[in-house]
């Protein structure tokens, strides 16, 4: 056992989104050199939309542009036949000794953390958000070596700092959640192709066929209907804050709604090469278009929270934009479902 030589094999991956980045870096460490962020995102069916009714987070609407935390890692590993170990703890001391054991064995591990106490984050970003992910890949005296996928470079945390973020409280409390690939089998191109197809089909299902009116592409319409009413119902100030929250959920680091659409476009481009199916390139373009439309809508929403746009007409225009985005995404996913991939 030699920690130094082991940890040197770990390569930091800078990613657009934390869970994709952790998944990519851990799988690459275990020899899956073909793994990329778009591939992990697509195999894990990462694209999603949901506005949870009646729930507010940080005094704004609860919206997510991605699938459930943990799902991307779980699904991508499962598709490739990679066995995964995951643990949660009620006792921080036990969580740390488990981590120490893995680190002493030279195994990099993924950890779910809260960002409120994450010391290296700029203060402006430290809200009570508990679904951030990072990799602990070594220990240098009393500091843990940290690979945070949203950062260009690696960093470090003291034992106390790390324990604190691993035991952050509130919604989605991590409870020391630790996860890592345990065993990797033989991975053939055929397995990768199957994983891609499965990832696409599941994403089609999640976006098109999910029941209820507040998730999948219909969730975008749900938010659109909400936005139309916000000015009268909440008043201009609060309505502006709600739109600001959408933009933060949409464009900020670790969430990236518009960004996720580009990521899915990049995934379909890679999928086209693996499956040797150029039809996917055309559909990739539609997700690029959707990503651009999300960004354009963010610019208009900014007009409201900056106080430049105040009329109901602006709210209606924003709502209409969302309906257009919904139809672009619905069309794109319907096309994907009609490809009969794998047949």
């Amino acid at each position: 056992m030699n920690i130094d030589t082991k940890t040197e094999e770990f390569h930091h991956v800078h990613a657009a989104h934390c869970e994709n980045g952790v998944t990519t870096a851990l799988l690459r460490y275990h020899g899956l050199d073909f793994m990329t962020e778009p591939l992990a995102f697509g195999m894990g069916s990462g694209l999603f939309y949901i506005q949870i009714p009646f729930l507010t987070i940080n005094n704004g609407p609860a919206i997510s542009f991605r699938t459930m935390p943990g799902a991307i890692f779980k699904r991508t590993c499962r598709a490739l036949g990679v066995e995964v170990t995951r643990n949660k703890f009620s006792d921080p001391a036990k969580a740390q000794s488990f981590l120490d054991k893995k680190i002493n064995d030279g195994v990099p591990v993924g950890c779910q953390v809260g960002v409120f106490h994450l010391t290296y984050f700029p203060k402006e970003y430290r809200f009570h958000f508990n679904a951030h992910n990072l990799i602990v890949y070594g220990r240098d005296d009393d500091r843990y070596q940290i690979s945070d996928p949203i950062m260009e470079e690696v960093t470090s945390l003291s034992a106390e700092e790390l324990s604190r973020v691993r035991f952050a409280q509130g919604p989605l409390a991590p409870k020391g959640h630790i996860y890592f690939p345990e065993r990797v089998g033989v991975i053939t191109d055929d397995l990768i192709r199957k994983g891609i197809i499965k990832g696409i089909k599941r994403n089609v299902r999640d976006m098109i066929s999910i029941p209820g009116n507040f998730a999948g592409v219909n969730g975008i319409r749900y938010t659109s209907n909400n936005i139309r009413k916000w000015r009268d119902k909440l008043g201009l100030k609060k309505a502006g804050l709600y739109l600001g929250q959408i933009v933060r959920m949409q464009e900020e680091i670790g969430t990236g709604g518009g960004g996720f659409r580009f990521l899915y476009g990049a995934f379909l481009e890679e999928a086209a090469a693996y499956l040797q199916d150029d039809r996917l390139i055309g559909i990739s373009e539609e997700f690029t278009k959707s990503g651009d439309m999300w960004r354009a809508s963010a610019i208009q929403m900014a007009g409201v929270y900056k106080g430049r746009l105040t009329e109901q007409q602006s709210f209606d225009e924003i709502a209409d934009r969302l309906l257009q985005i919904r139809s672009v995404e619905k069309e794109a996913f319907l096309k994907l479902s009609k490809l009969n991939l794998g047949k």
């Binding site: 800078h14 778009p38 700029p122 960004g259 476009g265 690029t288």
Partner: peptide, 18 residues
């Protein structure tokens, strides 16, 4: 955020590829 890091983004290059 730029005090800490730049953000990685997926963009289209001149050839229309990501």
């Amino acid at each position: 955020l730029s005090r800490l890091t730049r953000e990685l983004c997926y963009v289209k290059n001149e050839d229309g590829k990501y």
